[in-house]
Design a binder for these strands. Structure first.
Lengths: 226, 226
DNA sequence: GCATGTGAAGCAGTTCACAGCG
DNA sequence: CGCTGTGAACTGCTTCACATGC
């Protein structure tokens, strides 16, 4: 058992971990035994030195002159990501996006299990999606507690997002993935990540309008601070 | 017509522009006439100095002692984002996510018009979604050219993404929003932004597993880089 | 008086380059 | 000899603090 305390990991590094994990998974499936930082970097589209620095934050997993053992490295990264234990997730807002996420194979493969679907529309409640019955949002807090769900996904319209956020916090959720185009207010103990499709397109549009501003390759933008 | 050459805008600033745009839009709807950098910062969940610095990259739009004129500032930001002209978008991969995006109201409101939907499934082709008939991916390049679509969205399974990417490039697309969990290879002239839901959840899981690593407030989304 | 705009300071992540080790 | 791991240099964003101007 390696050391216990993770040193402060740079946020950009944390964001890249899932990428490494994904690529290593593929390599493992292809029965590749070892990778050098250069190869892994190539496959991830990042700089080799960055890969080594990132991995070094967790310890020395590589072998000099050889590279990294794919299976071992994969295991270490998954452990860092806390994928060893399955995590329960609830989704609020069963519109098209909510449906899409509920049925997403990627979530399950990544170690997440969806344990609750919620909405407020009378005609949506009761519907069965991905084997789960959609319930009214008022039941969200209790379900979070009974299912021990610590992660919530918000796919409601903007107007309903803050209310849902409050209910999630009430249910003990400590991490929220927010797709609603709204700035949420949540307790400091609740981690919020925002995803905004329109904003992504707008960024692309910006660089189209300002080709000179494009920095060759955008790359890992890091977190904008709050 | 203001000046022509945009100075090099920091990538983090570009990522925040859509956020400012959104918040300013709300303020405009509420008929708020002016905002100070502090108020705008509060509403966006960012630092006030950052707001001023960001805006200063585009010129001096504020009035000392008063703040910024909401309508004027909004107009300037939209102009910077190139929202003044509508942009045509094509979507490849009409699974649940593709459907969700095709019907997304947010895209239209943000100045994007969806002009083509594509898939390879025989039973999906021909279906009409959001007023558009789904066509076979082989038609993608020609439609991009005829509709002058410069932005493509990939919502296919991972295995089909690179092929679609190639076809988009062939069709003259210069910006791609990629939802497939794959590292795409595209010409340097094509800007790619990746969005990976599972990766977002994994990042949240990481911070749950390492509460000590949480940097106060991560904030606004960032893209895992290429 | 009050809020912007900005030089300067501070800080963080990236990249370099090489010592160290298999 | 090759590749990792890492100190050090570098680059760039963030934050500060205040002069400027309404």
């Amino acid at each position: 058992m390696p050391e216990r305390f993770a040193r402060r990991i740079p946020a950009p590094t944390v964001v890249r971990l899932p990428l490494y994990q994904r690529v290593l998974n593929e390599l493992a499936r292809e029965a590749v035994a070892t990778v050098s930082s250069a190869e892994l970097a190539e496959a991830c589209g990042v700089n080799a030195a960055k890969v080594r620095k990132d991995l070094s934050h967790f310890g020395s997993y590589g072998t000099r002159g050889t590279g990294y053992d794919v299976d071992y490295l994969l295991g270490q990264i998954q452990r860092e990501l806390g994928i060893d234990r399955e995590r329960a997730v609830v989704i609020a807002g069963m519109g098209h996006l909510g449906h899409a996420l509920a049925r997403s194979a990627g979530f399950v493969q990544s170690g997440f299990r969806i344990v609750g679907l919620f909405d407020v529309q009378p005609d949506t409640i009761g519907e069965v999606v991905a084997g789960l019955r959609v319930r009214h949002v008022s039941e969200l807090p209790s379900v979070c507690r009974s299912e021990d769900a610590a992660i919530g996904v918000i796919t409601t319209p903007g107007g309903a997002a803050q209310d849902v956020c409050d209910r999630m916090a009430e249910g003990g959720v400590s991490a929220i993935l927010n797709f609603a185009p709204v700035v949420l207010t949540a307790p400091a103990s609740v981690q919020v990540r925002d995803v905004d499709f329109s904003a992504e397109l707008q960024v692309l549009a910006f660089y189209q309008a300002h080709p000179d501003a494009a920095t060759g390759r955008p790359e890992a933008p890091a977190r904008a601070g709050r």
